[in-house]
Simulated scan of single mutants.
Amino acid sequence: MSDIRKYIAECVGTMFLVFMGCGSAVLAANHVGNLGISFAFGLSVLVMVYAIGPVSGCHINPAITLAMLVFKRIKTKEAVWYMVAQFIGAAVGAAVLYGIANGTVGYNILINGLGQNGYGAVGSPGGYCVLSGALIEFVLTALFLFVIFGAIHKNTPAGFAGIAIGFALVLIHIVGIPVTGVSVNPARSFGPALINLIAGNSFPMSQLWLFILMPSLGALFGGWMHHVIYKESN
């Protein structure tokens, strides 16, 4: 039962992140702008660290779980179920968001989107190419994991991890939104892409590979950087 509670927590946490973060882009972008969207994503993680962190550790991101697995902070079976729960939670969050957004005159998912990530002339908010998208997703995820591993290090003052991690994600979105909309989280990209596909728009799903591959590689690199720098104190 303790394991099931962890998986439910990861599912709920990821749903919260996708609904609040993507929701700020779909429902409130005209009011809050990119800065508000950045804070919505960062604050979502910050509050979830304290809401579900004591239960599951609050990964709510398959790239984080992958890094935790590779650097032996989580067992394989647990990591697999964490990822399953995260992808389900992201899909639920995106579905709820679509249900709300679709209830107003003038909303069209093909035009307004669902907060999905993308690259190129059509997918990127700023028209950035696939190389730019791949590079920024790799770098931002690596830096994010470096912050996470540092924030949860045994020598770091206890109780402040959520603040550091949440505000790191705010900074990441401030820089990255114009390029890809910012993923750094395969589940966060999967949820909106899946609901787009179900609603008849296959384009976000066709670009999903980048937002699975590059955050995963970036997470591993960020975890490796932390291991190298903190080796003597681990």
Rank of each mutant, 00 (worst) to 15 (best):
A151H: 08
G150W: 09
V147F: 12
I163N: 09
T156K: 05
S132R: 04
F160A: 10
L131T: 14
V170E: 05
A142H: 10
I172V: 15
G126D: 04
C129A: 15
T156P: 08
A161G: 09
I172S: 12
P157W: 03
F144N: 00
S124C: 07
A164C: 07
A168R: 05
F167C: 09
L131Q: 11
G159D: 02
I165W: 03
S124K: 00
L135V: 14
V139P: 10
I152A: 09
P125Q: 00
V122D: 13
G162D: 02
I148F: 14
G166V: 08
P125I: 00
I152C: 10
L145K: 04
G166H: 04
V122C: 11
V170T: 04
F144Y: 06
F160L: 13
L169N: 05
T156V: 07
F149Y: 03
A151C: 09
I148N: 06
H153A: 14
I136V: 14
A121S: 10
F149V: 05
S124N: 01
V139R: 05
A161I: 06
A121N: 11
L131Y: 12
G127T: 02
T141Q: 01
N155C: 12
G127E: 01
H153R: 08
F167Y: 12
C129L: 13
I172A: 14
A151M: 06
E137L: 02
A168D: 10
G150T: 15
T156S: 07
A142S: 11
I165P: 03
A161H: 03
G123P: 00
A158Q: 13
G162Q: 04
A121I: 12
A164W: 09
I152V: 13
V139H: 10
H153Y: 10
F138Q: 05
I172D: 08
F146T: 02
A168C: 15
L169G: 05
V139Y: 10
K154M: 09
I136G: 08
V130M: 12
Y128E: 00
K154E: 06
L131A: 14
Y128G: 00
A134M: 15
V147H: 06
A158H: 13
L135F: 14
V170M: 04
P157M: 00
L135Q: 09
L143S: 07
Y128T: 00
V139L: 15
I163E: 08
A151E: 06
I163L: 15
V122H: 12
C129K: 13
S124A: 03
P125W: 02
F146E: 04
V130L: 13
G127V: 03
Y128L: 00
A151Y: 07
I165S: 02
P157H: 02
G150N: 15
F160S: 09
I165G: 01
L171M: 14
F138R: 00
A142M: 13
I152M: 07
F146I: 06
L140K: 09
V130H: 08
G126Y: 02
P125E: 01
G123M: 01
Y128D: 01
A168K: 09
I152K: 07
L131S: 12
F146P: 10
V139D: 08
A161Y: 07
N155L: 13
A134L: 14
L145P: 10
I148K: 00
A168P: 11
E137H: 01
Y128Q: 01
F138V: 03
V130P: 07
K154F: 12
A164S: 11
A168Q: 11
G159N: 04
